[in-house]
Design a binder for these strands. Structure first.
Lengths: 238, 238
DNA sequence: CGTTTACTTGAGTAAACTCAACAATTGTGG
DNA sequence: CCACAATTGTTGAGTTTACTCAAGTAAACG
C-alpha cells in the first residue's frame, strides 16, 4: 500500500523534501486503489468529478475532441501526477482524461483532498509548486506547437518525457518506456500520424533517437536536446 | 490607492467573494506602484524576480524568443492578473514578461506575497483557483494552436480576451480595447503577421469582428463564438 | 490463424510561409 | 504645424511544410 504514493513523494520532494507527516496524510487520503484498462476514461469532458486520482502505474492523457472529430492531447499524465485538481467542487471538466496504457490509480475524495492539502502548509506549498510546474509544461507545449517544426516538436516531446520520467525514477540515461502510438504523438503535437511517421524515421536516420518495442532509445541525448532547443528550466519553475 | 487592487478583487471574487480582510491584506502587500512604458520588460528570461506584480492598467505578455529570433507569446496579462507567481524564491524565469502597452503595476515582495497568500485560507483558495484558471487558458491555447485553422484561432483569441476583459469590467457586450498589433496576434497564435492580416480581413468581410482604432468590434458575438468553437467553461475550472 | 491495430510509403493538395514592395498611420523633432 | 522617420498594415507572387487520400505491410492479440 505505502508503495502507491512513492512516485508522488519523489516528485514533490524535488521542490522540498516532505516529512513523514505529509507522507502519512497522503497515504490516508489516497486510500482506495483501482485499475483502469487502456482507453478507458478516468474523467469525462463536461462532467464534475468527485474524485482526485493519483497515478501510480501507467500513462494517461488529458485530451479534447473537436467538432470535426480530431483530438488534441493537452498533456501526458505520468506516475506521480495528481489530477484533476479542482478549485471548487462545482467545477466542470472542460476536457477528458483517458488511460493511454493500463493504469493503477489511487483515489481520494476531491473535497477531502482540497481541504487536507490547503490546510497543511507543507502540502499546500508542494502542490502549489506542482501546479506551477504544470503551467510551465503547458507553456512549453504552446511554444513547441506554435513555433517549431515537426522535427523539433517531436524531439522536444522526447526530452520532456525523459526528464519527467527521470524525476520519478522511471527512466535511465539512455532509454525509457514510451507506450505511445505515432497517432498519440501526432495528437499531442498537432500533427498527423503520417507526418509523425516520416519525421520519426528522419530522427532515427539522424541517429538521435529510436522508438522500438514501446521503448525510446536516446542515441545522442545531448544533440537531441540541442536540436529540440530544450530548456529544462521550466520543470523547476518559475 | 485602494483603486489599484479593484480588478484583482473583481477577478478573484468570481470564484468566491472576498471579505474586507482579504482586500486589506492585498492592499498592504501591493503597496508600491510603478509605471512601465510600452515594450519595457517587467521580467527577464533567465533571471530570478524578487517581486510580484499586480497589473492595474494596460496589457502585458509572457513571451519567449527562439534561437532563430522568432517570438512566441505564451499568454496575455490583463488588469487584475498577478505575475510571475513563483513557488520558490530561487525559481528562474524560463520566459520574459513585456509591457504590450504602457502599464501601471502594483508591486509586492515575492517572499511576502507567497507567505501572506499561503497563510491565509481564503487567499490561498482564491489564488489556487486563479492558477487553475491560468492552466485552463493555457490548455485552450494548446488546443487552439494545435488543431484550429488560422481563422478559428484568431476568432477564438478574440472570444477569450472578450470574456476575460468582461470579468474585470473592461469590455462591454459588443466591443473592447484591443491594443495588439497584427504582429502580436501572429506571435500569440503561431502565425505570421501577413497571414493574420489576410485572415482578419476575411473575418471582417464575414461580418464577425472588426479591428479599428485599437478597438475590436464584435459584429456578431454569437456567431463568432460559434465558428471559434469557443467553450467558456475553461475560465471556470476545472 | 485470422483480425484488428499500428506502421509505412507514395502521390497529389492546401494552408500557411517567405520575400518583397508599398500604403497608411503614428510618432517626433524642428 | 509641418516634415520626416518609424511603425503598422496591405497586397502580390512563388514556395514549403505538413496534410489528405489511398494502399499496403508488419506487428499484436484473442
Amino acid at each position: 500500500m505505502g508503495k502507491m504514493v512513492e512516485p508522488l513523494i519523489d516528485r514533490l520532494s524535488q521542490f522540498k523534501p516532505l516529512d513523514e507527516n505529509c507522507r502519512a496524510t497522503l497515504e490516508s487520503l489516497f486510500g482506495t486503489t483501482k485499475r483502469y484498462p487502456r482507453h478507458k476514461n478516468l474523467a469525462h469532458d463536461g462532467e464534475t468529478p468527485e474524485e482526485v486520482f493519483l497515478l501510480c502505474r501507467g500513462w494517461a492523457a488529458r485530451y479534447k475532441v473537436m467538432q470535426d472529430g480530431s483530438r488534441q492531447i493537452l498533456s501526458f499524465l505520468l506516475p506521480g501526477d495528481v489530477f484533476p485538481i479542482h478549485a471548487s467542487a462545482s467545477g466542470v471538466m472542460d476536457h477528458g482524461i483517458v488511460a493511454v496504457t493500463e493504469c493503477d490509480v489511487a483515489i481520494a475524495s476531491a473535497s477531502e483532498f482540497n481541504r487536507a492539502v490547503l490546510d497543511d502548509g507543507d502540502l499546500a506549498r508542494a502542490f502549489w509548486w506542482s501546479i506551477l510546474v504544470d503551467k510551465g509544461i503547458l507553456r512549453a507545449w504552446v511554444l513547441n506547437i506554435g513555433q517549431r517544426s515537426a522535427y523539433c516538436r517531436i524531439a522536444n516531446l522526447f526530452c520532456e518525457l525523459h526528464r519527467r520520467l527521470k524525476s520519478v525514477r522511471l527512466a535511465d540515461d539512455h532509454s525509457f518506456d514510451l507506450p505511445l502510438t505515432q497517432h498519440d504523438i501526432a495528437d499531442a503535437q498537432g500533427l498527423t500520424a503520417v507526418h509523425v511517421n516520416r519525421t520519426m524515421r528522419q530522427i532515427k536516420e539522424d541517429v538521435l533517437a529510436e522508438h522500438k518495442n514501446k521503448k525510446l532509445y536516446l542515441l545522442d541525448p545531448e544533440r537531441l536536446c540541442d536540436v529540440a532547443e530544450f530548456d529544462p528550466a521550466y520543470l523547476n519553475p518559475g
